[in-house]
């Protein structure tokens, strides 16, 4: 028994062509019995190895069974000209067509490998080079329009959604905190206060708290010179 791995084959047609080559079978006179037997052997082996088998392999198994059963049934199908239709015809045509393209693909591989040996300048992603052969409205169809649209969208700057979150600090709490920072004489320096603040939000909320404390007349504020330190004095709480 030959060791066959399903993943070596591009599909069921490829596997059948392998049998045909291996056993030097005439493609126009395929022994369906034998080839079905071989085919099921491979599938069974895959099953016993717990390899999941792609649907197309199962479909081909069914097709082979159908052809085999048609051969067994003595009643023959005739075409329009009254000739007997070989139940294998469809499959054979498929195999021949597939073999054709497999041959072409081998030639394409040679071309590709050959072209791959020489190097040319490549268009880089950031290049401004545009295909200056401008599309005329006649050439323009829905699909290159869609392609251009996709390119434009990909190039468009990414807009990040803005997230609004509840503030982690409340004004009331901050006011209490500030009031607790006043020294025994009821004084507090603004520079001292902000030097302990870590981030912008902290500074803003503290500033708001101070403004609010002034508004509600709980503290007074003095400043000696422009841009000099602010000095807060706590007003006696009754």
């Amino acid at each position: 028994m030959h060791n066959i791995h399903l993943d070596q084959f591009e599909g069921p047609l490829d596997l059948l062509l392998y049998f045909i080559r291996r056993d030097e079978i005439d493609i126009y006179d395929i022994p369906i019995s034998k080839i079905t037997y071989d085919y099921f052997n491979v599938i069974d082996k895959m099953n016993s190895l717990n390899v999941s088998i792609a649907g197309e392999f199962v479909l081909m198994a069914a097709t082979l069974m159908k052809i085999k059963s048609k051969i067994l049934i003595p009643r023959q199908e005739l075409n329009e000209e009254g000739e007997v239709i070989d139940p294998r015809t469809d499959l054979v045509n498929k195999l021949i067509e597939y073999q054709q393209f497999k041959t072409v693909s081998e030639q394409l591989r040679l071309l590709h490998d050959e072209a791959d040996l020489s190097y040319s300048r490549k268009l880089s992603e950031e290049s401004d080079y545009e295909n200056s052969e401008k599309l005329s409205p006649n050439d323009l169809n829905l699909f290159n329009l869609a392609e251009l649209f996709k390119k434009a969208i990909e190039k468009a700057p990414l807009i990040k959604p803005m997230e609004l979150r509840a503030e982690p600090v409340s004004l009331e709490n901050r006011k209490k905190l500030i009031l607790s920072l006043f020294d025994g004489n009821g004084k507090l320096s603004f520079f001292n206060l902000i030097s302990n603040l870590k981030n912008r939000l902290d500074i803003i909320i503290s500033f708001l708290a101070i403004l609010d404390l002034i508004r509600t007349k709980q503290i007074l504020v003095f400043q000696k010179d422009v841009f000099s330190d602010l000095e807060f004095t706590i007003l006696t709480i009754e």
Binding site: E10, G11, E56, K94, E97, Y98, F101, V104, L108
Partner: peptide
Amino acid sequence: LESLSIIAYKQPVSKSLLESIRGVD
């Protein structure tokens, strides 16, 4: 490569024609 050769010779080609020739998805 197989798909490319089918497309190259039969273009324009639909996915279903490609699949029927290759016998796979």
